[in-house]
Amino acid sequence: MAQSIQETQEELIEEFGLFDDWADKYEYLIDLGKKLPNLSEVFKTEENVIKGCQSRVWLHAEKQGDQIVFEADSEAVIVKGMISMLIRVLSHHTAEEIIQADLYFIDQIGMSQHLAQTRSNGLLSMVKQMKNYALAFSAK
């Protein structure tokens, strides 16, 4: 049995708890971004682009059994790091679990500024889009 969305969030909070200053935190985030596998070019379509981000962000979702699997990519590595965490938390869960998920870890690890509603930031749209996929799949 895979771990729950809550368990993964707790795990991330613990990992980020190890860092004293912002630079270490961001270096870790950048590292996560670099390690996230690039999205296959076939999925980097105009349809998969998340609007409202300063860098281009692509999100692809598919259903495997009763679970939804997300893959995503971005031109900006910090965004990619954030995406990597979102995938780790939400991917391989059921539509119902994803729709219900309260993503409190972002605030707890001190990254809530990345959810700010400025035009330059697409993370909020990213979360919304992941939930939209879940809604769409559960309606099918």
């Binding site: 912002w22 630079a23 961001y26 950048i30 300063q54 860098s55 031109e75 900006a76 590595v77 910090i78 965004v79 330059s120």
Partner: peptide, 12 residues
Amino acid sequence: IHPQDLGVLLDK
């Protein structure tokens, strides 16, 4: 390097 990454870090 993507400009957005620099903007985020410089803000820090």
